[in-house]
């Protein structure tokens, strides 16, 4: 055997090139928005999980003598009810804590359903192209044309509102973002030479999808998932606010805003507090999504 020409990189400079994972971790630690997102969403997930231990009162227990108490810092506030009480005397802090459960359950559930539909359609359309792609594109246009909120309202109302129905309907109506992104990413990946190499070595379609395509989609899917988490949470709150989502007495932040609306002019915190909770959770999810996108693809920012 002739001695091959030596490889063209000396060992010394090689050690300086970090692995993709190490680079990602370094970018994550330097990304303020990402860290803020992790902290906000992480805290709220913990709050939701630990609700029974964190909530000072039973969120459903009504107490007419204690109705419409203001938060502790306002005049007439009371340390027993840190954030005051609502029209029927339920502890507002406890209801807000339990509300996080509802929002996160619906957000994760709906985003998961949307992800399954959208990713499946997107990968198929992108990988197979041709008539599959044409049909999926048509389906996409049709879905985009439907007024989603209106249809969701009508369906929830007719089928009958429950947490599972709300999750299902929001999920089934929110897959287009997953589809659009995975479709174009799959198209791009499919034309890469490593896919051609896999085909030339005799890999089956399934092997190619699983080993070559999906690992390269994962970071984008996670990014969209976090955005869709926020979007689904907002959709649930809109439905509940309009009275065609989560039904009383379940504590949902959107529903709490609707209930507090009657007292808007003289007890505004009933509206402000659940709104701020919603805002925090959704901005946390969005910061997380933005951060993940910057971290995973530093070249293609925004």
């Amino acid at each position: 055997m002739t001695i091959s020409t030596p490889a063209d990189l000396p060992a010394a400079s090689e050690a300086k090139t970090p692995t993709p994972r190490a680079l990602m971790l370094r970018r994550a630690l330097e990304h303020k928005g990402f860290i803020a997102g992790v902290v906000i969403v992480g805290t709220l997930i913990l709050v939701a999980l630990l609700a029974p231990w964190l909530a000072p009162h039973d969120p459903f227990a009504q107490s007419l003598p204690h109705r419409l108490l203001p938060p502790v810092w306002a005049e007439g506030g009371n340390w027993d009810y840190l954030l005051g009480t609502d029209q029927v005397g339920r502890d507002y802090l406890s209801r807000l804590i339990y509300g996080a459960r509802v929002s996160l359950t619906i957000g994760f559930g709906a985003a998961l359903i949307g992800m399954m539909i959208g990713v499946t359609l997107g990968v198929c359309a992108g990988y197979f192209g041709g008539w599959v792609d044409h049909s999926v594109s048509f389906l996409l246009t049709a879905q985009l044309a439907l007024p989603g909120l209106l249809l969701a309202m009508a369906l929830v109302f007719i089928i009958g509102p429950s947490v599972w129905v709300v999750i299902g309907i929001i999920g089934v109506l929110h897959w287009t973002y997953f589809l659009v992104v995975t479709r174009s990413a799959t198209q791009r990946l499919r034309s890469q030479d490593f896919v051609a190499a896999a085909r030339a070595m005799g890999a089956t379609r399934w092997q190619i999808l699983r080993t070559e395509i999906l690992p390269n989609l994962s970071s984008q899917i996670i990014v969209i998932f976090t955005f869709e988490l926020g979007i689904s949470i907002l959709a649930e709150s809109s439905l509940s606010f309009l009275g065609v989502g989560i039904q009383p007495p379940t504590p949902s932040w959107g529903l709490m805003i609707a209930e507090g609306k009657q007292a808007l002019f003289y007890r505004p915190w009933l509206v402000i507090l659940p709104g701020v909770s919603l805002f925090l959770l959704v901005i946390g999810a969005n910061l997380l999504g933005d951060g993940l996108r910057d971290i995973t693809s530093p070249q293609g920012r925004n």
Binding site: G254, K261, G275, F279, I283, A285
Partner: peptide, 22 residues
């Protein structure tokens, strides 16, 4: 501008309406 965009995306529009009313 980006911070503004991220925040605006997170505000439920019915709540924004109620806040403006107040």
């Amino acid at each position: 501008a980006l911070t503004f965009a991220v925040s605006a995306q997170a505000i439920p529009s019915f709540w924004l309406g109620l806040m403006l009313i107040i």
